[in-house]
Amino acid sequence: MSEPMIQLSEVTKIYTRGSEKLVVLDRFSLEIEEGEFAALMGPSGSGKTTLLNLVGGLDAPEGGDVWVAGAHVSEMEGQELARWRADTIGFVFQGFNLLPVLSAFENVELPLMLTPLSRKKRREHAEYALELVGLKDRAKHRPRQLSGGQEQRVAIARALAMDPKVILADEPTGDLDRASADQVLDLLEKLNREHGKTIVIVTHDPSAASRAHKIIHMDKGKLGRIDVNPVAVAGS
């Protein structure tokens, strides 16, 4: 049997504020297979975003192990971790997080600067990613000249530019209207189905969660139940 794409084992994360210690993840274990589309749900403060940060190597746990795509993420740090993140993970944030001083095209091209690709190749990659999200004609627009939905699609194009194995999306539709949210979810679904990307999204939106193969419920830093979505599984 092959290794899971994402594996968390007995992960503990504690935030310290003054003398107060807050256990955000308590001996949390989870596995997500390659090519899976998983949704993390739960009330605010249940540790969803923290979990996503640990998987993406943005934060480090106090205990336990995090493995992603065969790499022992919780043991990596510094340059090695940054390099791994660039190669393996594509992030999509609720607030889009595009650099406001760069155009849509330049935002997508930005992570490609970390590769040895020639300028021409970088251009091709960025154009392809923008084409994939249907925004090639908005390439020269700055983020403030785009709608929220378009900004999020640019952010997805940026996450795709490096062809990552895993896409982590933290409430990707949280700031969007229904129509834009659906467009973004359609896109994520397509990336999962047609390009085989492993996708983990954090969401409060049942409609968004309904696109996932499995819905992982969290509460107070602990794993609740896992619902398998037969419709989504059948469609993939």
């Binding site: 993406g56 940054a82 993140r85 997080n97 406001p100 930005l110 970390l114």
Partner: peptide
Amino acid sequence: VHSVGVMKALGFVD
């Protein structure tokens, strides 16, 4: 600060 966070998340080293 925020843009720095984004760049670091994308894989830019410190």
